[in-house]
Design a protein around this nucleic acid. Sequence first.
DNA 1: AGCCTTTGACCAGCG
DNA 2: TCGCTGGTCAAAGGC
Length: 132
Amino acid sequence: MLSMYNYQSRETEEHTEEQQHTDRGRQRLVLPEDGFEWKKYGQKFIKNIGKFRGYFRCQKRDCMAKKRAEWSSPENLRIVYKGSHSHASSTQDSSSASSQGTPSSSAANQYNLYTQLFGNQPASSTRDQDHT
DNA sequence: AGCCTTTGACCAGCG
DNA sequence: TCGCTGGTCAAAGGC
């Protein structure tokens, strides 16, 4: 069963070092940089899946995009995006923004973010997005 | 002084 | 109808 997390692990360990301003010197889970600015507004332990889940919201006031991070350990991090950004990424990623043309396309946006983090793996492992 | 993160409590929805 | 889980908000602390 752990095999499904293999690709996530390799993806996470790269970004785990990207502890930038988010690191206040306290022990905390570092999230992979996806080109957007997120503000954490909650965290809970979901016993259903036996993982912690962090709740993030885009810092842009007009942006309703949300992000959910689940992890059983720092090596097994899963990011789930919800909603779409009403703006382009705050950093790089100009390719996805320009190719989209319409940032409102939530499906395309999610796909871009998804592929960014997980490559092109089957969504079977990240079907949590069924909410949307 | 300001911003961000963390923790706890509260509310809503579903079984 | 009650209980449980998930999600969000608010307040406090630290950098």
